[in-house]
Design a protein around this nucleic acid. Structure first.
Lengths: 230, 230
DNA sequence: TTTGTATCTCTTGTATACTAGAGCTACAGA
DNA sequence: TCTGTAGCTCTAGTATACAAGAGATACAAA
């Protein structure tokens, strides 16, 4: 885990106007989302401090912030670990995000500007191409763009914050899902249904379609979590 | 602001198994929710440290955590203030919480145990009594109990976390709403509608009723925010 | 009077030193 | 061998010292 991260860390040019604490926070968060640190991994303060060439103070502040959004779990006098939700909690998180993303789709159906709608369609088209030709990683990224385009079209920044927060916690599990064979095709037809509902400005249909789309991911994620012996 | 808080702070018996940092966090959070610190108020580290009889370190960690959940806003090298969402953001937050609480009601309609349903009805009855006889503060608290009973009946802990997080941010605005004359009666009939839908196990109706109930609060909160010249 | 700038102050950001509790280790007794 | 406990070690929690940037202040020039 240390080699690659270390190099990334060295590349951290001291950014202006940002505190070390904030830079460290972003770095650790990204490492967790990227899977460099996996759920359950210990996050030793001194080790991190050395790796990121700072004192423990900014590390501690960063860990506290990550703990506040539940990406990290701190046991008093024992230390920080990457949070490892159990199966029940993963299901619950997917339920929450399905509700939030469903709501986003519902709002988007009535509020999306023409440009925002166009962006959604464009993202959908990209997914379509990559579903056939591209590699799994590319499709995963394109999928993210599609979803975020819908969040944006809801025109509610607080909602985006909220979805993003939950999304981060699910990242370690959600990441691998689209790699499953056959899933891409299914996902595409679901996306198509959602995109159509949005284009036709049908809030209820868009909401329901999105909710179901997300909950199907939940099943896959659970399978994955099971494979990882959670 | 300092007098009352100071006394509260002195009352902080050093709790076992809890870090100072955690105690301080809870204290500041409660002070914000209680309205002791109002949106926009400056949170001076040294002043807080003296008030709570600690060094700056636990204060800083607490403030960082509160900033992570957006209850506090930190401007680098300038300090922390109680977050002050603008009107648009308040509306957005109410939209988000209406979606989440609506979802909770929907889940509760199918998942609530008999005991949980009984608790909801009981809370509703308490509200009913207080709407007629009690003071505003008592009604506000009972209202909270009613809502939380529904969150609980959704049987999804992550959802509760999420709702709670948003609820905290709205606390300064939501707090005064039930004080408005006449609102209590309206609120009660809405509660009755929700309770009935839950008892009859009708998810869609419960969801819609809850969503509307919350969005009506939004209007009141906005009026309040306007009065406070936000 | 106003505006620009230099300096100074005051708070925050970071590092380091010190304290203390959790959990491991090793040894003694059953 | 197993179990309980003493103590030891190692990391986290807290305090304090030091650095640095933002914003205030005061003065000079237009």
């Amino acid at each position: 885990m240390s080699k690659q991260a270390s190099e990334v860390a060295q590349g951290l040019a001291k950014q202006k106007g940002r505190t070390l604490s904030a830079i460290v926070e972003l770095q650790i968060e990204q490492d967790i989302i990227d899977g460099l640190y996996r759920p359950g991994d210990r996050l030793d303060e001194e080790e991190l401090a050395e790796r990121l060439s700072t004192s423990r103070t900014p590390i501690r502040e960063a860990l506290r912030k990550l703990a506040a959004i539940d990406l990290v779990t701190i046991q008093p006098r024992s230390g920080a670990r990457v949070s490892r939700p159990n199966m029940a909690q993963i299901i619950e998180l997917f339920e929450v995000i399905s509700a939030l993303e469903g709501f986003a789709a519902k709002l988007a159906a009535t509020r999306a500007t023409d440009e925002q709608l166009a962006a959604i369609i464009a993202a959908h088209d990209t997914c379509e191409e990559l579903a056939v030709s591209g590699d799994a990683k590319a499709y995963f990224d394109a999928n993210g763009v599609f979803h975020r385009a819908i969040w944006t079209a809801a025109n509610n920044l607080m909602l985006i914050d909220q979805i993003t927060a939950v999304d981060k916690r699910l990242a370690p599990y959600r990441r691998q899902i689209t790699f499953h064979p056959g899933r891409k095709q299914d996902s595409q037809s679901e996306h198509a249904q959602i995109a159509r509902a949005l284009a036709e400005r049908q809030p209820e249909i868009a909401e329901k379609a999105m909710q179901e789309h997300v909950m199907i991911l939940s099943d896959d994620a659970l399978q994955l979590a099971r494979d990882l012996r959670l």
